[in-house]
Design a protein around this nucleic acid. Structure first.
Length: 115
DNA sequence: TCATTGGCTATCA
DNA sequence: CTGATAGCCAATG
């Protein structure tokens, strides 16, 4: 009788698979020479407390060619992490005209990408 | 202004 | 359950 069930585990409410796709979609939109932050991505997608999750997702599935995940950094201007190392990340960013010193973005405030 | 602490999120060892 | 991650934020001293 009652067909109950569905016991959706906690992850239905978060919709993780969907969340990942949205993360990738969003990051692909970041223009060259601009950056965003893990927290900002999380907020735009409606998960203000899941900044850390963004980093996890990117590290798990870095489609380095299609998705410019090197343009996503920490909210305080630090580089964050990168599959190939933060040195590599810094190099890529510099190439796009972003000024970095001691693994920190100097003009962070001016190049932040607004969705 | 800086350093520390605790809470959040999801996953793995 | 604990600790550790590509983090963020507010509170505290």
């Amino acid at each position: 009788m009652f067909c109950r069930t569905k016991k959706r585990s906690q992850n239905s409410s978060t919709g993780l698979a969907d969340f990942q796709k949205q993360v990738y979609s969003l990051i692909k939109k970041i223009s060259k020479g601009r950056i965003s932050t893990y927290g900002q991505i999380a907020r735009v997608l409606g998960r203000p407390n899941s900044a850390r999750l963004i980093g996890r997702i990117l590290s798990k599935n870095p489609h380095l060619i299609k998705i410019p995940c090197h343009r996503v950094v920490k909210s305080d201007g630090q580089i964050g992490g990168y599959k190939l190392g933060i040195r590599k990340k810094a190099q890529l960013l510099k190439k796009e005209g972003i000024k970095i010193q001691r693994d920190k973005i100097l003009n962070f405030n001016q190049i932040i990408f607004k969705f």
